[in-house]
Computed example of a mutant assay.
Amino acid sequence: MALGYECDTRFIAAHHQPAVLIDLAMSRGIDSHQLLRGTGLFYEDVSAGRARVSPAQSLMLIANARRLLAADDSSFLFGQRLLPGHYGDVSHALNHAASLHQALDVLQQFRALLCPLLTPRVLHDQKQVHLYWTDSCGAGEQLRFLIEANLTAVVALTRRLSGNRLPWRFHLAYAQPRHVEQYWVHLGEELAFESQMTMMSLPIDYLHQPWPTASATAGQVALQASQAQLEALGWSRSFIDQLYEHLETHIRDPLSLERVAQAFDMSPATFKRKLHKHGTGFQEQLDQVRKHVALYLYRMKGYGNEEVANYLRFNDTTNFRRSFKRWTGLAPSSLGQLFD
């Protein structure tokens, strides 16, 4: 299979998402030389529109901005400006989405162009649509900044395009931060911290409600141009995304590092090195996917412990319970806490 982009792949236009953060920092008096230190970027190249940066360089920029700004609202203000953005055709495609359903499709299909560092994934049941997020390239210490920014970006986008503030509810997979008031201001008060997944949810009725500003013709032309841009890059997702989706597809098969490395047409040693480069390992990725699938089966399919264990090919429920507690910190019997 053709591998997706990696943490050191230079493909992100520096005058797109990185420039949004650069402009925010400079508007608050931050010196551009300090801001760009260690990123390999020069402001002149960014403003000339000729620089391309890797996810690792983007993450260094975020680290610098966080340190220099030293403000609790930085990620949220960054997120307010992210979508639909000024990224050419793909921003036009998003701007002309006819509904939330179409906007989420665009966000997923063109994630390499719209949100290259954090991957949006959509699930829905009969009552709700859920948008959850996974790390694309090994964000490390910048992960929470990215989560805050991307959640805010989707809230701001849907409010702008629908004409209303939609009643999103949020689950955050970390403890409540000291700056929780920023969440209240930018996301609302429907927040659950220390959850099992980072996810935002909305009643399903909002998924197909028509949005007033869409132009079907302009949107279609922009989608075609965006697809051509994606094809020119040669991939639409990251290597870590590809691994997540391979594991998810084959979650009921016997999975080992050696088998998956073979599916990716590389040696186990090379595969391990690639994962290590992204700050992760095979077991960590497999456990994450198993956890997500188990939570999906419990929450949306209404499966019991034995059914989930059987689906995931565990030989006995005792072994499954032990593994489930390792993934979540909770026993399956604590289901009430899983989705608080």
Rank of each mutant, 00 (worst) to 15 (best):
L114Q: 04
L114G: 02
L114A: 04
L114E: 03
P116E: 10
P116Q: 13
L117A: 02
L117N: 06
L117W: 05
L118Y: 05
P120W: 14
V122Y: 04
L123T: 10
L123E: 14
H124S: 15
H124N: 15
D125K: 10
Q126S: 13
K127D: 14
Q128C: 09
V129I: 15
W133R: 11
T134M: 10
S136A: 15
C137S: 11
C137R: 03
A139N: 15
A139F: 01
Q142L: 01
L143D: 04
R144C: 05
L146S: 08
L146C: 13
I147Y: 09
A149L: 08
A149E: 06
A149M: 12
L151A: 14
L151H: 13
T152C: 14
A153P: 07
A153F: 07
V154S: 03
V154Y: 01
V155E: 13
A156I: 04
A156L: 05
L157P: 05
L157V: 00
T158R: 02
R159F: 01
R159H: 08
R159L: 02
R159Y: 03
R160K: 13
L161S: 14
G163S: 06
G163N: 03
N164P: 00
N164V: 07
N164A: 08
N164S: 06
R165M: 06
R165A: 12
P167T: 07
P167D: 10
P167H: 12
P167W: 13
W168M: 02
W168D: 08
F170D: 01
H171C: 06
L172H: 05
L172P: 02
A173S: 10
A173R: 07
A173V: 11
Y174P: 03
Y174T: 03
A175V: 07
A175S: 14
Q176L: 08
P177K: 09
H179R: 07
V180Q: 08
E181M: 11
E181K: 09
E181N: 10
Q182E: 09
Q182C: 08
Y183C: 01
W184V: 04
W184P: 00
V185A: 09
H186M: 02
L187Y: 03
L187A: 09
L187R: 00
E189F: 12
E190C: 01
E190Q: 12
A192G: 03
F193C: 09
F193L: 03
E194R: 05
E194A: 13
S195V: 10
Q196S: 09
M197V: 15
T198Q: 04
M200Q: 05
S201V: 03
L202P: 10
L202K: 13
L202F: 14
P203T: 08
P203W: 09
I204Q: 14
D205P: 00
L207T: 15
H208R: 12
H208G: 04
P210L: 02
W211F: 11
P212Y: 12
P212K: 11
A214L: 10
A214R: 04
A216K: 15
A218S: 12
A218C: 11
G219A: 07
Q220E: 13
A222M: 06
